[in-house]
Amino acid sequence: MTATTNQAPTRGLIFRRVRPTGGDVIVATLMLVVVVASAFPLVWMVLSSFKTTAETMQVPPVWLPRSPSFDAYDKVAGVINVGRSMWNSLVIASVTTAGILLTSLMAGYAFAKYRFRGSNLLFALLIATMFLPPIVTLIPLYRIVGSLGLNASLGGVILPNLANAFGIFLMRQFIAGVPDDLIDAARVDGASELRILFSIVAPSVIPAIAALALFAFVYHWNSYLWPLTVLQGNSDQYPIVISLSRLLSYNRGAMNTGLVMAGATLAVLPPLVLFVFLQRFFVDSIVGSGVKG
């Protein structure tokens, strides 16, 4: 130790000493274990979706399909309307996302750049809703949406989710960083506030908008409890995640494994593909959303 004591580590390594050690082997092994453990269930899902029914029922289990087939996908299409379900999911996720972007930008701008009486109190009240599990409001919400005549419709799935506290919070954080001078200059030129928001403020916070859009889209593509409750068995309007449950009740037991795995693969694909291409935004927005140690 004495010879190296004066060489403080310059690279960002917490535990590592300057010279590579046997610890590196352990670290590399650990990383491999973590990657395998994270990926295994999804890899198994995809592999099983290509197995024959006989293969999925074999004991002990077969890992690789001997002659990969699309039979399970064909059968899925026979049990649920895949196109319709995917379309419903797409409508729910994209309309909800558009609404959240609009309401969050507007409210985030007001909280970041306007001074008005009760601003902090109102903001705190809205943020508090972020910590409310949806089940707490589910029963009256179901009744309220029903009294608006929106039960069993996509409108009923979408409407209650068009604004949320996380979006407002995220937008306020990022819009606060837009220089006041920029906004004041536009006001002097006589631009309306809405115009300032959409042509000056919004373009300056594009990364935050992208992150919020991705989060909202994935969250509402995946969401299950509320659509299940409000759609009341109207299977024409089911998003893909709810249609999946019909695959499980089809031929209950080991018989339906391939079917279930094929359906799950279809449902997982859109959010996962979005993530693969845009993962930077997801991760950066979590880091940037104010969780500062």
Binding site: S38, L42, M45, N222, L244, A267, P271, L272, F275, F282
Partner: peptide
């Protein structure tokens, strides 16, 4: 990225798989 990707998977698919 690999660790975070599981968070993108719908819970319903996680449960089924």
């Amino acid at each position: 990225a690999v660790l975070f990707s599981t968070y993108m998977v719908p819970m319903i698919a996680v449960a089924l798989v």
